[in-house]
């Protein structure tokens, strides 16, 4: 209870300082609030139980995948589902696909490298990919849940 009140006061103070324009709120400070975005159901492996963590205004999102029961096993569907989950997590963290610094993408077949680009761009608002991306292919079946793709992100509030 004490730490909760302290955290609220800290956030309030940070807000006031930010409004006052002194710029403290923009730095990733040691006492910035550290939030863990856990899923409502614990132990949701092969999906990650923690969707994102946040330090101040910096967000680290976990890797998101498409599970076997979530539609046909096509690159388009898997990308749509996994990016949809990433977008939902970013929204919950107070961010969006417009405020990305970096996405890391994994595919389970090197032949999918160029075909990935169309459904990946389509997942962004406005249908245009944003931000930088690192993309890597692993062996078939090596993405948890036998997903064809995985995406994670670093973003800001």
């Amino acid at each position: 209870m004490k730490t909760q009140r302290r955290d609220i006061l800290k956030a309030f103070a940070a807000g006031i300082v930010g409004i006052a324009g002194l710029g403290f709120a923009n730095k990733v400070k040691a006492d910035a609030v550290h939030i863990t975005g856990e899923s409502a159901i614990k132990n949701r492996y092969p999906e990650e139980p923690v969707k994102f963590t946040k330090l101040g205004n910096l967000i680290f999102a976990s890797g998101f995948i498409c599970l076997p029961h979530e539609g046909p096993r096509t690159l388009e569907n898997h990308t749509k589902v996994a990016m949809g989950k990433l977008e939902a997590a970013l929204k919950e963290a107070g961010s969006s696909l417009d405020k990305l610094h970096r996405v890391t993408a994994w595919i389970d077949d090197p032949a999918n490298y160029f075909p990935l680009n169309a459904p990946y761009a389509a997942a962004f608002p406005g249908g245009r990919r944003k931000g930088n991306r690192s993309c890597m292919a692993v062996s078939p079946g090596n993405i948890p849940g036998n997903s064809m793709v995985a995406f994670d992100a670093i973003a800001r509030v």
């Binding site: 863990t36 963590t53 976990s62 090596n142 993405i143 948890p144």
Partner: peptide, 18 residues
């Protein structure tokens, strides 16, 4: 999972390599 303090698990991406 057992290595992390309660409520403080980091975000994670898990991948199998060759």
């Amino acid at each position: 999972d057992a290595a992390w303090p309660k409520g403080k698990m980091p975000a994670r991406t898990c991948i199998a390599v060759a």
